[in-house]
Structure formats: C-alpha cells, structure tokens
Amino acid sequence: MVRKALVLVLLAAVMLLAFAANYPRKPVTIICPWGAGGGTDRLARFLADELSKKLGQPFTVVNRTGGGGAVGHAAGAYAAPDGYTLTLVTLEIATMHWMGLTDLTFEAFDYIAQVNEDPAGVIVKADAPWKTLEDLLNDIKANPGKYLFSGTAAGGIWDLARIGMLDAAGISPDAVTWVPTTGAAPALVELLGGHVHVVTCSIAEAVSQIQSGQARALAVMADERHPMFPDVPTLKELGINWSAGTWRGVAVPKGTPSEIKKILEDAIIEIASSESFKSFMQANGFGIKIRRGQEFYEFVKQQDQAWKKVLELGGYLQK
C-alpha cells in the first residue's frame, strides 16, 4: 500500500518535472502591439520563426493594435502566466500610463530579454542651412518660436526625445513648435516637402532618406555613435547630456514559472547572438542591444522614471 502510494507520488513528481522541462508542449502566441508589416512586427516574426526552429513548437505572431500600443500590451499582460503568450514589449510600456492612456504599468510583466535599441536622430533636409547641431541650437536660441519640429504624435516618443534634448541643452522646449503626425514616415514626408524644419525620429526609420542623400543627420541621441553612420556625432560628444531612443524586447505575464522563463531567456539570447539575427537587424537598420531578464527589468524601471520627468516637462503628465 505504502509502496504503491510512494510509486504514485514519485510518478507524479517525475511527471511534474517533465511538464516543466517539456515547455513548450503546444503552439505559443507572440503578441505584437503594433501593425503587421511595421518594424516591430518584422522583428516579432523573425523571433517567432527562430523560436519555432529552436523549441520545436510553432510560435505565431498575433497583431493586437490600437490605443498607441495599449491594447496589445494589455492583452499580453493579462494573458495566463503559463508561458504560452509572449509579448513583444516596446518603450511605450514605460510612457503610456503616465499619459493616462492605460492603467497598465511595466510591473505587469516579467521580463525575458531585450534585443533592440534604436537611438533618435536629429534629421534635417539635405539643403538645410545648418551644418552642425550647434548651428541649429544657436539658431533656435536666436529665433525662439520660428522652427517647426516633427516626428510623431504629440507626447509620442520622438516628441519626448526632442523635449529632453532641448532641455538638456538649456533651451526651453517651447522655443520650437511640435507638428504632430501619425508617425515618422509622414513626418519625413513633411521634412522632404520643406513643410517642417527638423525631424527627431529613430535613425532606423530614416535610413533610406539619409543614405540616398535626401536628408542629413546632425546628431544621434545615443551613448555611442551609430555603426551605420559613424560620422554623425552623439549628443554627449557635443556636451549635451541626453540619450533617447526606442527599444524592444520580449516579456511574459507576471507570475510565469521561472523554469519556463529560463528556457525562453536562453533561447532568445542564443538567437540574438546568432549571425542570422545580426544580418536581419542590419538589413532593417535596427540596432542590437541585448539585456538579460533581470537587467532588462532594471532598465525598464529606470526608463519609466526617466520618461515621467520628460512628460512632465512637456505638460503631458496625467497623474
């Protein structure tokens, strides 16, 4: 009798172990909070393909768009914490709750790994009068209210990047006017049409225009120079203590078993270190930045506070 029970318990224990180690046993969903075909979606699909190959179960991307990223992040955060719903989280997880767009904060997720970071650039039309960022900033100081900046919606990441840069350079953010658009692409249309003067957006989104000589980057808002544009100085080199950019990574709902998180973290880190990932990111003009789970969490936490300050400066803070 006792032996029988012991065997049963042992069997159950073995099965439980096997259960945990046997992740994934069914198809896994990756939620992408942004539209099909965009940069985040391409990255999600690449990771999904590689994870399917590595872990032997299909990983499928589901686009849950809307609410400036709020819909997808919420869907991912409130899914069952069983490792079968991953979310490709983006920077907005650290900004949107401050703007009153959602109650969701970064604490709703457990972080697996960050794989990308794209710094903002200060981009002007090829024939613009400013040769350096210093020229531009001096001109803004001399002519407050004259110049139009654009890059995304009001309170969007590239608006915040602009506010932070001007503030760090000792210029009031009100010295230029922000022209809201629905994203970087329409802002670049405005720039090339000569309807706005400066676009602050991800360098990655303007690669085509810069490389074809239609636009110039005066600076990148990063700690190091961009590998694709080694001639463009960073703000820090120019004496302005400000870095800003977007980033992407993978997260799971809070409370996901740590064995599963470990499996995912190892798999994604391995993928992110591979040659095929490097060439994929280069083809898309994306920057690679790898942070493991705990480090990624600390980073998001720091971002959450950093952006709060900038949102306050721009008058976007809701609570």
Binding site: G39, R42, V207, Q211, Q214, A283, G285
Partner: peptide
Amino acid sequence: LGAMLMYGLRPGP
C-alpha cells in the same frame, strides 16, 4: 517599404 529593406533594397531616388 519595410519588406524592401528585408530584400536588401533601399527605396528612394
């Protein structure tokens, strides 16, 4: 335009 980058093409003039 996103797909073109994946094909290794740089759209633009």
